[in-house]
Nucleic acid binder design. Structure first.
Length: 669
RNA sequence: GCCAACGUUGCACAGCUGGUAGUGCUCCUGAUUUGUAAUCAGGUGGUCGGGAGUUCAAAUCUCUCCGUUGGCUCCA
């Protein structure tokens, strides 16, 4: 007999050799997918030979889902190799919500995916045992002799001559550490979602593989919930809503990743800019304006040109100079070299605003009494994003940062960074974006990616760390996430699908002041070097608006609504009154639209709902005769007979407080 | 940039294995003057992403370029 102690302190006495699964079923009931013996995850089928501690991994726990999804990946690989014997499985890990598996094989279409899924379901019905086997190095290499990927994994992961485990289900065998569920019948709630390509070892120079993605859950309900969420997310996709609500347009003829803000979208952007403008005035910023291009040499000095050459639009070179170089037989690559070496100059579309702001700083002598100086500009910058990366408003080639650069003394860093962070928090608070995390980006291993001396980096990183710590919210420190000139504090927002978007950012920079030889006169009469803080609370107007559209599902708070009020007349008798109400609202700065068409009121409501105004006013005989309005909100709630003056006062209050709630229609009425 | 799929009127879609395009909504014109999610009837609108090729004939097949989507890689 051996003793098995459970987490709750009880001890089971069992005969040696009984499987962990049997003990777990006795102790915990059903629902386990794997066991933990002496702290080590293992299969339920593992026989218990000596006294130990034992715990279960339940299918609905994080670890359990991990096991389930991993086993599902194997199931996928088995189905694929049955249908496509030539396919070579490579790796297939569990991921959030599901799993993927990469194969070396020919391309797959939609029908292939459905066929594979069918095969998977068939294998589940067969209820194949999934069993673990230990093999030595030699037999492993024989087993996977025709799969160079598995061999490579062994070469990489296993010590010389060491063996490993494989998992077998039916004819399918995969090199794997496990643990796995006991049989294929445990895998019920999955769905293949998409195929794509991936590179072996994430290296674009190596084999191109076909990746199949699937999702997998412990219960039918969880799987359905995920499917519902995905459907709803598709409905609030900013690319779809941007079109439906006429917020922005991206035009083939203009160029990939170049956002055209339409009148309705521009309202949203302008309101956001006004909003932040109020806080900039409060915090003592100065507005500046700078052009969209600058000399190459400016960006050689800053480091942007050498460090990010591949992701910039190519430089502009003067026509005469180009002609002369062409006459001299200069090739493109020679031209590029000459530019890099600084032999010839050109202009660059600005990839960042800081160099321009720095030169404004340098245009005058400064004393410590001037600092901090805070230059703010909604500056549009251009970056040559890879074509496959460009998407809607969230990943673009031209975007406007709500940028500012603060020139401060070392003593002022902490306070000024906090001011910047406060700004981000005010914005997120007003917009109700509370699902975000704070990331402190530090420099990584590869020193060639960063400029400046390491002491300066140490100081800047410490400043960021202590500022983040003083926030009182959890934050993570991540190496390799710094800008090339300094560390940063990023605000990363999670959307409904759990995708993360970097929006607000605050960066402490000792390096650009050095590169541009910035100085100020100190109280001691000596020259000192200021420190720069870069910050953009929205990040980019394009990305922020894209995320905001999805955040609100197109139903903007009244202060942001492209059209706040749509007035619908009952019949043509009421057009005069409608126009009168419209004029009064316009005088107050309310964005209002009148529908005086001869459609029925039902039809008008249906049509206007699509544009998501904050409120619709329905005006007929009753309203016209009593100077009242009938208000209908987005939810379809309505209240009639509200005196016009009352309505206007309440509407203005809702707008000026930037309320996210629609309060003008109360059920109490 | 890489791989795959896709690209038909402002929007959403039909058009099977090749025979010069259809529907709904929008829009316009009539009729209707309407009380909270579609009144009726008529009409406009497309050289089927661009270019080239195969064919008697191409939206439909091939090539190429552009763009979109999903991933991969990247993001100051």
């Amino acid at each position: 007999m051996v003793e098995v102690s459970l987490p709750n302190g009880t001890i089971h006495e069992i005969a040696a050799g009984v499987s962990a699964g049997d003990v777990i079923k006795d102790a915990f009931g059903r629902g386990a997918v794997a066991a933990i013996i002496n702290g080590e995850p293992c299969d339920l089928s593992t026989p218990i030979e000596e006294s130990c501690t034992l715990d279960q991994i339940h299918s609905e726990s994080d670890e359990g889902l991990h096991v389930l999804r991993h086993s599902c990946a194997h199931l996928l690989a088995q189905a694929v190799t049955q249908l496509h014997p030539e396919a070579k499985p490579t790796i297939g890990p569990p991921i959030e919500h599901g799993f993927y598996y990469d194969f070396e094989m020919g391309p797959l279409g939609e029908e292939d995916l459905r066929e594979i899924e069918k095969k998977m379901k068939y294998i589940v019905k067969q209820n194949l045992q999934i069993s673990r086997e230990e093999h030595d190095s030699e037999s492993l290499r024989q087993m996977f002799a025709d799969n160079q990927f598995k061999i490579e994994i062994m070469d990489d992961k296993l010590d010389d001559g060491a063996g490993s485990s494989v998992y077998r289900q039916g004819e399918f065998v995969d090199l794997c550490r496990g643990p796995h569920v006991p049989s294929t019948s445990y895998l019920r709630h999955f769905k293949l979602t998409s195929t794509s390509t991936a590179f072996w070892r994430a290296d674009s120079n190596r084999e191109h593989l076909v990746r199949i993605y699937g999702m997998c859950y412990a219960t039918k309900e969880d799987l359905q919930a995920r499917e519902t969420l995905l459907r709803e997310a598709a409905l609030r996709d900013h690319r779809k809503l941007g079109k439906d609500l006429q917020l922005f347009h991206i035009d083939e003829m203009v160029g990939q990743g170049l956002v055209l803000w339409t009148p309705r979208g521009s309202v949203v952007r302008q309101e956001l800019q006004n909003f932040i403008g109020e806080h900039l005035r409060r915090q003592g910023y100065s507005q500046v304006f700078t052009p969209h291009i600058g000399k190459l040499d400016l960006y050689r000095t800053s480091g942007h040109f050498p460090y990010y050459q591949d992701s910039q639009y190519p430089p502009l070179v003067e026509r005469d100079l180009m002609a002369k170089l062409a006459d001299d037989g200069c090739s493109c690559s020679e031209l590029s070299n000459l530019m890099e070496e600084g032999e010839i100059d050109g202009y660059l579309l600005k990839p960042m605003n800081c160099p321009h702001h720095i030169r404004i700083y340098s245009s005058q002598p400064h004393s410590y009494r001037d600092l901090p100086l805070r230059f703010a500009e909604f500056g549009t910058v251009y970056r040559w994003e890879q074509s496959g990366e460009i998407s809607g408003m969230t990943r673009v080639r031209g975007f406007t940062q709500d940028d500012a650069h603060l020139f401060v003394t070392e003593d002022q860093i902490a306070e000024e960074v906090l001011g910047c962070i406060e700004l981000v928090q005010v914005i997120f608070g007003v917009l109700g974006m509370d699902d975000y995390r704070v990331r402190v980006g530090l420099r990584g291993e590869d020193s060639s990616k960063y400029v400046g001396q390491s002491e300066k980096w140490d100081k800047a990183e410490e400043a960021c760390r202590s500022a983040a710590a003083s926030l009182g919210v959890p934050f993570t420190e991540e190496e390799g996430e710094a800008a090339f000139y300094g560390p940063k504090i990023d605000f990363v927002v999670r959307d409904v699908l759990g995708r993360e978007w970097q929006l607000g950012t605050v960066q402490v920079d000792y390096n650009l002041p050095e590169r541009f030889d910035l100085e100020y006169a100190g109280a001691d009469g000596e020259k000192h070097r200021p420190v720069m803080i870069h910050r953009a609370p929205f990040g980019s107007m394009e990305r922020f608006c894209g995320v905001l559209i999805e955040h609100f599902a197109g139903k903007f708070p009244t202060w942001l609504s492209p059209t706040q009020i749509h007035i619908l007349t009952i019949s043509e008798k009421h057009i005069d009154y409608a126009n009168e109400v419209s004029e009064e609202l316009k005088v107050l700065g309310v964005r209002v639209e009148v529908d005086d068409s001869d459609n029925t009121i039902g039809k008008k409501i249906r049509t206007h709902r699509k544009m998501q105004p904050s409120y619709m006013l329905v005006l007929g005989d009753e309203e016209a005769s009593s100077r009242t309005v009938s208000i209908r909100n987005r939810a379809g709630d309505q209240v009639q007979g509200v005196p016009l003056d009352n309505f206007m006062a309440n509407l203005l209050a809702e707008i000026s407080t930037r309320s996210s709630e629609q309060k003008l229609v109360s059920k109490l009425d």
